[in-house]
Design a protein around this nucleic acid. Structure first.
Length: 491
RNA sequence: GGCCCGGUGGUCAAGCGGUUAAGACUCCGCCCUUUCACGGCGGCAACACGGGUUCGAGUCCCGUCCGGGUCACCA
């Protein structure tokens, strides 16, 4: 089983060089964590900021965890977020394939190359079944086995794994763009499994091989991998390869001690969308969870994707974990909602309006909502009174600030009904002018007249829009019907 | 337990030896007003602790405490 050196030369020859290349490498689990999304964003941002290449790679080496349709979620999310990739399983590229399960042979080749170089060895030990509380490092007997003996066992069909041979003694220093230089004693490192018994690589090994072979210049990942980084360095050194820039990001937390996780019911990107959040708002918020702009831009919070590309610098990435604050996301969402053009808002709001309104045109209702909702999902409840007047209590006619009580309200409605009945052109202007003029005539505050009208028209104490807008949308006939009903209620 | 990392208001955070320690969210007032919002103005609230170094320390060093990560043939 000699090694095919030409193979390695060919692989090396394909590696693109000279510009920034980053990769987002999710394992297909079926949903996008907020933390994952942020990693994807930062990775994409580094590539775009550096006018480089962004690659999508699928890490599916865990055969036991494959989920049907899971890669689709990744493609869809990336597309929705406009985090476009230049190379990947779907679009191809110079260093294809971009799915790890299709690169199986490569990992085996490189693992054996490493054995030959003396930096890895075959291990035939039985799987260590979860030894609890066993922290002590023990020397693997296979480490000192001769290569001839090991190869003979392999020939004989004995199952094996390939382990990294960590040097005894000495220290390894690795540099991280966020955390700086970190030094560790080699003796604290384990002889990591590189190639599993099933012939597939471990995550760590596959990463090193792929990142090198794909010419990745910046490796962005979660800080949970920080402690395995020295082993990566040793691997790069063993192969004689350049070490890429590491960018370790601290996790997005649900509270001070727990990472956000699907298990605990924390929302994924998809969940947030379903809760009425806009993609742009989610991205903007997530960008600022663990990164903040420097200098002049330090106070800026609202960023378009293009602005992020321009402003994003590694120096602004935080070392400490950040707690996800749904209230602040909600605030960002409200800002995005309000800043949309009326047409754009109508488009996103219409489906929600239609959930509870069928008799009236969403285009008339949407303008009342734009400044009044923080999430799209709040809409149906806010406008439910349009289709059907809810049951309501006469108590609603009492309002201190508007100087209203049932008695006053009754008088107001008695004056309003004939006035509205006389309007021929049912426009907001006509209704507004009619009511204002009437208030003047009756010598009452506008609020005193408006309050009972709105209550009778909507049957709710809090409504989007005021009396004028609501009456206008309801139409003359329905308005008069409701006001008369209110009057009856007031006896 | 070993090793690694982190620690500015409740939350996100700026700060790079000298500042009245920014800003945003939340919360609370006030103004605007046709309810509620929007908008405007104002307010509450922080350098984990102890030692150094220095004329001077949130900023540098050491220790303590607290939190996180990791120690898989999972990623």
């Amino acid at each position: 089983m000699g090694l095919d050196y030409q193979y390695f030369e060919q692989m090396e020859a394909k590696i693109p060089k000279g510009k920034v290349r980053t990769r987002f490498a999710p394992s297909p689990t079926g949903y996008m964590h907020v933390g994952n999304l942020r990693t994807a964003l930062y990775t994409w941002l580094i590539a775009r900021h550096g006018k480089g290449t962004f690659i999508l790679r699928i890490e599916d080496t865990d055969q036991g965890r494959l989920v049907e349709g899971a890669t689709d979620v990744i493609y869809r999310t990336m597309a929705e977020c406009k985090l476009d990739h230049d190379e990947g399983p779907d679009v191809g590229g110079p260093v294809a394939p971009y799915i790890q399960s299709e690169r199986r042979d490569t990992y085996g080749q490189y693992a054996r190359l490493l054995v030959e170089k003396g930096h890895a060895y075959y291990c035939f030990c039985e799987k260590n079944e979860t030894e609890e509380e066993q922290f002590d490092k023990v020397e693997d007997p296979c480490r000192s086995m001769s290569l001839e003996e090991a190869l003979a066992k392999v020939e004989a069909g004995e199952p094996y794994v390939i382990r990294q041979k960590i040097p005894h003694g000495g220290t390894t220093i690795f540099q991280d763009a966020i955390f700086g230089d970190i030094t560790v004693e080699n003796d604290t490192l384990d002889d990591q499994v590189l190639l599993k018994r099933d012939g597939l690589p471990t995550y760590n090994f596959a990463n090193v091989i792929d990142d090198h072979l794909m010419g990745i210049t910046h490796v962005v990942r979660g800080s949970e991998y920080l402690s395995s980084a020295p082993k990566y360095n040793l691997l790069y050194q063993a192969f004689g390869w350049d070490v890429p820039t590491y960018v370790h990001c601290s996790p997005v937390m649900r509270d001070a001690q727990h990472k956000m996780s699907k298990r605990h019911g924390d929302p994924s990107y998809e969940d947030l969308k379903a809760q009425g959040y806009l993609t742009e708002a989610i991205l903007n918020y997530v960008a600022l969870l663990g990164w903040s702009p420097r200098g002049e831009l330090a106070e800026k919070e609202i960023f378009t994707l293009d602005e992020l590309v321009e402003a994003f610098e590694l120096t602004g990435v935080s070392k400490s974990p950040a707690i996800f604050d749904i209230d602040k996301l909600t605030h960002f969402n409200a800002i995005y909602l309000r800043s949309m053009s009326p047409e754009a808002f109508l488009e996103v709001a219409a489906p929600y309006i239609r959930q509870s309104v069928t008799k009236y045109d969403p285009a008339l209702i949407a303008p009342l909502l734009q400044a009044r909702c923080e999430k799209l999902t709040e809409i149906p409840e806010k406008v439910d009174f349009f289709d059907t007047l809810p049951e309501y209590s006469v108590e609603l006619f009492t309002n201190k600030k508007s100087k209203c009580n049932p008695e006053v309200s009754k008088a107001m409605l008695e004056a309003v009904i004939p006035m509205l009945d006389g309007i021929t052109q049912w426009t907001t202007e006509a209704i507004h002018d009619g009511l204002i003029t009437l208030a003047e005539k009756l010598e009452v505050k506008n609020a005193t007249l408006m309050w009972p009208v709105r209550i009778a028209a909507a049957g709710k104490s809090v409504t989007p829009g005021g009396a004028v807008e609501i009456c206008h949308i309801l139409g003359k006939e329905e308005t008069l019907r409701r006001l008369k009903l209110g009057l009856e209620k007031l006896g």
